[in-house]
């Protein structure tokens, strides 16, 4: 599993690396602006030890935090996005896919598989924001749907960790259709009485929020994650006002009744295990 660890190292704290201060040793927290020893942030699950800010983490890193060591078996690892519309903005979609594969790894924007969570078999789908902003095209929709169908078939709870800017515009109408496809699969899961827990991490917006991410039997958010339908910029342009502080953050959603709880990264695995054991009576 050498490749696995290498990827983790590569995706680790992409945000903390941007900082210009002494390469790699010190990081500046983008929330509290404190200069912190980079290793310390990493040791702290990529959460700022000063202000509790949750940095974005890669999919494989999150899988390591959630599943029991060595139990993850990846599904659909060889599924690739296709530029079927010949989409081109400033860059061709074909090239964007290639660049993303190089930068973020070969899982596209979501990595799915089976594994154990404190010995309970589960199916997980984990987004990687580093891959084209975690955007959902055909591959993401198909992988998520297969993950849900896997849960249905094996009677295992399904966990989706979202981190996505929304639908992938480069696949136009097909990205939109993935919202319907994944939600329909969840309808089947619900009818079968199998738990689905949606974990919302920073950021979860657009078509991902407006489909499976809001459909958890429980919706659980990481602290201070941006979660919404429309992006803040779009809303500001529409209503021509600046948005209030904390708008569309996890705490705002909790207050408005859209998420069930906010759980810090350090307690996530334990809380998920507790919830699933109640829901599955095990």
């Amino acid at each position: 599993m050498v490749w696995f660890r290498k990827k983790t190292a590569l995706t680790a704290s992409a945000e903390t690396k941007k900082v210009k201060i002494p390469e790699g040793v010190w990081s500046k927290c983008k929330n509290c602006q404190e200069i912190i020893y980079a290793k310390e942030i990493e040791r702290n699950l990529n959460v700022c030890p000063k202000c509790d800010y949750h940095f974005r983490i890669g999919a494989r890193e999150r899988i390591e935090l959630i599943l029991d060591a060595g139990t993850f078996v990846e599904m659909d690892a060889n599924m690739r996005s296709v530029d079927f519309l010949d989409f081109k903005d400033s860059k061709k979609y074909k090239e964007r896919i290639k660049a993303a594969l190089k930068k973020a790894g070969d899982g596209d924007a979501v990595i799915c598989g089976t594994g154990n969570l404190e010995e309970l078999p589960v199916v997980v789908a984990v987004f990687d924001f580093a891959f084209m902003g975690g955007s959902m095209g055909s591959v993401v929709g198909e992988k998520i749907t297969r993950a849900i169908e896997k849960g249905l078939e094996s009677h295992a709870p399904v966990l989706i960790f979202s981190s996505s800017g929304g639908a992938r515009m480069q696949e136009s109408i097909h990205s939109l259709m993935q919202m319907a496809k994944t939600s329909a699969a969840l309808a089947k899961l619900k009818a079968a009485g199998i738990p689905f827990i949606s974990v919302l991490t920073d950021p979860t917006t657009g078509g991902v929020t407006a489909s499976f991410a809001m459909l958890g039997d429980l919706n659980i958010a990481e602290p201070r994650a941006l979660i919404g339908f429309a992006g803040p910029r779009v809303i500001e342009q529409t209503i021509r006002q600046t948005l209030p502080d904390g708008f569309q953050r996890s705490e705002f959603l909790l207050e408005h009744g859209m998420v069930d709880m906010i759980v810090p990264r350090s307690e996530m695995k334990q809380r998920l295990s507790q919830v699933l054991r109640i829901f599955t009576k095990s």
């Binding site: 489909s211 459909l215 339908f229 809303i235 209503i239 569309q248 859209m258």
Partner: peptide, 20 residues
């Protein structure tokens, strides 16, 4: 509609629920 009230009242949840 992308507005403050729409977000407060769960635009994403309303759409998602309809899909399901």
């Amino acid at each position: 509609f992308p507005g403050i009230g729409a977000e407060e009242r769960g635009q994403a949840e309303a759409i998602a629920r309809n899909l399901r």
